[in-house]
Nucleic acid binder design. Structure first.
Lengths: 163, 163
DNA sequence: GGATTCGCAACTAGACTGGTTACAGTTCAG
DNA sequence: CTGAACTGTAACCAGTCTAGTTGCGAATCC
């Protein structure tokens, strides 16, 4: 049942959005509009991304956030680590009781198995960059022509392709 | 923060314990004693493992659970799928708003990325069997000499090696 | 028939998530 | 220098998940 929180998905969305508005300072209000959430939620995310060195944020009037690195130098693994900072993916159960030889070292063994699984997952996330995501989403290269400032809406008529 | 629940860890412990008591029907009370939890928690787990065809459970007096397959034919992936039946590891955020081209297909793209990561993790879990775990925990082969019935406590004096 | 055991429903406390309001601090424009 | 536009953060909330616990009916064996 338990899933990894949607913070990772939201954060990737945020960074892809910032990649699209390269060079501008984008407000949490604007971003929240695209991600369809509350500006405070975006600012909370932005705090984690800032701590991880993925974005720069400027407070005050005309402030906002922008990418701190090239989109091709930010992987989804970076994002995962920035916003989901737990060291272990799998929880272990309580310390086994008694002197049974199963309980004696089961947690050590499981730690190894789970760590390898977590590592394999992270390796896959590390192979995808924000530039990749941007390209797959828009069909455009990440460094292509910038849209006119503020222009985000499509010419209308193109229905969204949803998987 | 969110982790995969300790059900997977507990279930692997349970199956390793059953591997040790091959051929016997072990009660939820006995298992709970080793795993250090409540018998009802064990029975809940056992329900999932039974549905997945990993154990056989007999109700009534002198009942209990035993493995339904050879330990080398049960992988940790089987256990994961049995007790943690969510289809997706990563949660997606709410449907993006507006006609922004980022929001248009971000969820489809993320679904692909996350699905590959989840697949890599499962591949790793599928490479480890209960027999492997049993061997790594006890230092003995899974089909080695059975301990005397009920004997689980060590001669005492051997401190637990804890990773 | 009585003892043993599972299956399951119901309830609990604790944690986490995402949303919301509120407010202090920072920055810029005029 | 004042006001508007921002961020940062604390506080609170409802919803969900987790693991534990109690209680009881049903199955099974002696």
């Amino acid at each position: 049942m338990s899933t990894i929180s949607s913070r990772v998905a939201m954060a990737v969305h945020v960074l892809a959005f910032l990649a699209r508005r390269r060079g501008e300072a984008v407000t949490s209000d604007t971003i929240a509009g695209s991600v369809n959430t509350n500006p405070v939620v975006v600012r909370r995310l932005m705090g984690s991304l800032r701590n991880a060195g993925l974005v720069q944020v400027q407070p005050g009037a005309r402030g906002g956030a922008q990418l701190a690195r090239e989109p091709q130098n930010i992987t989804v693994l970076d994002v995962y680590r920035a916003v989901e900072e737990k060291p272990d993916l799998f929880a272990l159960h309580a310390e086994p009781r008694g002197d049974c030889d199963i309980g004696g070292n089961i947690r050590g063994v499981l730690r190894g198995v789970f760590s390898r699984a977590h590592g394999a997952m992270q390796r896959e996330l590390g192979a995808v960059t924000i530039a990749d995501v941007f390209h797959d989403v828009t069909g455009r290269s990440c460094c292509g022509p910038q849209p006119a400032k503020g222009e985000c809406r499509q010419p209308a008529g193109r229905p969204h392709a949803e998987a």
